[in-house]
Structures are given as C-alpha cells and as structure tokens.
Design a protein around this nucleic acid. Structure first.
Lengths: 190, 190
DNA sequence: GGCAGTAGGTTACCAACGGTAGGTTACCGG
DNA sequence: CCGGTAACCTACCGTTGGTAACCTACTGCC
C-alpha cells in the first residue's frame, strides 16, 4: 500500500469516528486500531490529534468546494446559478453526511491551529466572492466579502436544521435560501 | 459568599479562559486555581468539564437573546425592527466579546451533551420565529423556521468575519445583513 | 455548654489519553 | 551478502478529567 493510500485510509476512518462520536470523545488509540496500525503511525502522518482533524477538515472542505463550484457554472441567469449552487451544497451534505459533519468541528481549533486553517478559508471565500462579482456587480469588494460570509453561514446553519428535519429535501432548502437571499424578506412584507 | 455568587464567579472565570485559550487547551485545575478554590468544587457545581462549558454557553446565549429581543421592539416598520435586531446583535458581540466567543465552542458538544443544549436552541429559535411571523406573515410555519435558521447562521458567520476585520462597525454589518436578507441580492442584479 | 448534622472545602489518588523514545522487521541497491 | 532506510511496534511518560475519603466550621437543639 502506498503512502498516499495509507493516508486516505486513515482520513476515512478519522472522518467516520469524528463525525459519529465527536472530536473529544474519540482517542487516537481507537482510530489507530480501526485503521489496523498503531498510534505512532498517526503521529508520523499528522503530527498531532488536532493535525489529524485539520487534515480531515481540509479534505472535506475541498470536496464540498469542488461540488458547489461545478454546480454554479450550470444555469444561464444569475438567479439560476445561485440556485444550483445552493442545491449542490445541500445535496452534498446529504450524500457525504460524515464529511460534512466534521466541518462543524472546526471551531474546536479556535485555540490551536486556527492560523493554518485561515488559508483554506480565505481561499474558499475568495471563490465565492468571485461568483459574487458576477452575481452582483458594482458593489465594493468589502461588501461582497460580507455577502459571501453571510451566505456560507446561512447555508451551514440551514444544513444543520435539515439534520433535525430530514424530510426537508435539498430542493426545498435551496428554495428557502433563495427566498431570503435572492428575493429578500421585503418581498413577503405586509 | 452565597452559592449563586460562587456560581457566577466560576462562570466568569470559565468564560474568560474558554474564550481566550479554547476549551481543549485549559484544564479544570487551572480554572479552579483562578477561582481560588480546588477542583472538586467545580465538579460539585457543574458535574463535568463539558457541564461547565454548557453552563457558560447557556448563560451567554441568554444574555445575547435578551439584548436582541429588547432591541427588536424598537422601530416602527418591519424593516426598522429587523435592522435594530441586527444592530443589537453586532453591538453585543463587540461589547461582550468573551461571552460571544464561547458560543462558538458549542460544536465541541456534538458528541456529548448535544441533547441538553437542544432545548435552549429550540427556545431561541422559537422567539425568532415569533418575530418572523410579524415580519413576514402568511408564510408556512416551516419556512419561517428555516428563515430563522438562515438569519442566525448568517449573523454568526458575519460576526466571525468582523473579528478578522475589526474596522467594520456594527452599523455597517447590520446594513450588510439588510442588503442580503431584506432587499435580497436580486436588487443589485445586472 | 455540648453535640449531631450538614454545607462547603481539601488532599490524595486513579484511569485514560496525547505524545515520544528507542528498538525491530522487511525490503532495497550494490 | 550487506549496509541503509522506510515502515512499524512496544513500552513508556506527563498531564488531565474525575472521584473517594476526609476535614472543618457553622447551624439548630436539648
């Protein structure tokens, strides 16, 4: 087995247990046993427990980004693009439930490797901002950045809400996002 | 010193140290020393480390809710109410930076006392939904719930963004929230 | 005053975990 | 056949979350 395959295997196991049991509740020993290796190997590959979490988060984030990025190229109008982006997001966290769950663990890193994750976040935000520039031209860069953050946060939370309401389809969630962020609540005002 | 005062004192210390060092990076021993007591007292009051975090989160959340709730009664029109709600939120996490920072630690609990925190969250969401009913009448309850989640998530993330961009005033952040959630992005379309 | 009961507090300990040092096996080029 | 190295393991350490057992000072009561 090559080194890259080993790493993927380790990340698969880590993703599974972090998602189901939570970061604090699982020991490195347990992960190692599940992989079929011993603890020091994990440290060889990832340096620390937080490093392992960081690696799984980075991978999950990349997968999510690729999925939504691809989708946002579909559709003609700005409205269509936005809708398809949302749809891809909610479909992703239905299909890759585990990968998505570890993304929620991110705040754990606040006190630790927060700096390292900043780069990936920055990169992701930049991409959304780029699409924003297409969506809503002639706005200050700073506002576009804010809008991107707003949308990411909203999606995250709505996805969490969907976990408690599993009968909400990705289509419905995407439509709800459109209601608020595209048309705006004023459209429904009294 | 009464029991309630002791508890408040412990929560103050916990809030400070969780916010600055992060949940995982701080030991119960350290907190106990800072309070001026010994470790078992913390366990007497909060049962476990996670229980202590849960208590600080619960308190912070209540303070935040009270602040925003009060503000949302100001203003005449629906638009005004929404704006003042946002403004109060961003002013709160500027003034009570520490309290707000522990709220971010919440996902740590995913694998643990997630059930207990569900009640508080539910209660908070219900209140926003109630204001939503006023804001955008004649929508299905289910959509209102989704809108509430969207708004909470968006605010959370934008507040996080503000921490990295400290020159963004609460007024500007509130305006950006209005741009997206009230007028909607379509208002700026090409 | 003397004394049982209890609230509030401590010391001393345990088990589990993150992390590491040092040794062992297995494979490779020469 | 052999030196070197990559992959891997066993055995250990320090710290930390959590607990048991004990102490102390106050309260109300005879």
């Amino acid at each position: 087995m090559t080194r890259a395959e080993r790493e993927r295997q380790m990340l698969d196991v880590a993703e599974e247990v972090f998602a189901t049991q939570g970061y604090g509740a699982v020991s490195m020993e347990e992960i190692a046993v599940r992989v079929g290796l011993s603890k020091p190997m994990l440290y060889e590959y990832f340096g620390s427990k937080e490093g392992l979490l960081l690696a799984t988060i980075t991978r999950a984030r990349r997968e999510l980004r690729e999925a939504t990025e691809r989708a946002a190229t579909e559709g003609e109008t700005a409205e269509d693009k936005l809708y398809h982006g949302y749809l891809a997001y909610f479909r992703f966290n239905e299909a890759h439930r585990r990968a998505w769950l570890v993304l929620l663990q991110e705040p754990v890193l606040l006190g630790g490797a927060a700096g390292e994750i900043e780069a990936t976040r920055r990169q992701q935000t930049d991409l959304i901002v780029a699409q924003m520039e297409w969506l809503v031209p002639d706005r200050p860069r700073r506002d576009l950045e804010a809008y991107a953050e707003i949308i990411v946060g909203a999606c995250e939370r709505l996805a969490l809400w969907r976990m408690r309401n599993p009968d909400v389809t990705p289509e419905e969630a995407a439509r709800q996002m459109m209601d608020v962020t595209w048309k705006g609540l004023s459209a429904y005002g009294a």
